[in-house]
């Protein structure tokens, strides 16, 4: 495998985490959790449009919109699940505005690049990998449909 290719926003997020000590990384994850936007109204009334991420221990639902060649991730997770909210928020912020091709090129091990293994545990991080895999699948489906 060559050097992992990260788009600017994702690389910035990774660097933000790696600059901190392990305990502070948790607090940064909490900042991300707090930044996860509320569901837009068109989804709030239609939870059936969102896909459940079963790899996460807490109920998290997400969907992807591909609009004019740019990807948006929309996710919802309860307040009682800040770790899951944080993961969703990182991906939503890092992916926002990328093209489908750029999104599909995000390394699958991006969740492992954030230095959270020890503070959060690898088991919990697998939830984020599950989200990323589902985002990519949806991007694939939705950009095929548009083509």
């Amino acid at each position: 495998m060559g050097e992992a290719k990260l788009t600017e926003a994702l690389a910035e997020i990774r660097d933000e985490f790696l600059e901190l000590g392990e305990q502070d990384r948790l607090l940064l994850l909490l900042d991300f959790a707090n930044e996860l936007p509320e569901l837009p109204e068109r989804y709030a009334d239609h939870p059936d449009l969102l896909e459940r991420v079963v790899e996460c221990q807490s109920p998290v639902f997400l969907t992807v919109e591909v609009d004019d060649g740019s990807v948006t991730v929309i996710a919802s997770a309860p307040r009682e699940a800040p770790t899951t909210r944080g993961f969703a928020s990182i991906l939503a912020q890092g992916i926002h505005g990328l093209s489908p091709a750029e999104t599909l090129e995000i390394p699958n091990d991006f969740p492992q690049m954030l230095g959270l293994g020890r503070a959060v545990s690898p088991l919990r991080l697998s939830g984020m990998s599950g989200m990323l895999a589902r985002i990519k699948r949806q991007v694939r489906e939705k950009s095929d449909a548009a083509a």
């Binding site: 607090l27 959790a33 307040r79 699940a81 800040p82 770790t83 899951t84 020890r118 503070a119 919990r124």
Partner: peptide
């Protein structure tokens, strides 16, 4: 907690956190 960050969102006054996994 199961969620490793839940304590940080607010806890009972004086409580310390012990994480099962880490």
């Amino acid at each position: 907690d199961e969620d490793v960050l839940l304590y940080e969102t607010g806890h009972i006054p004086g409580a310390v956190k012990v994480d099962w996994h880490t």
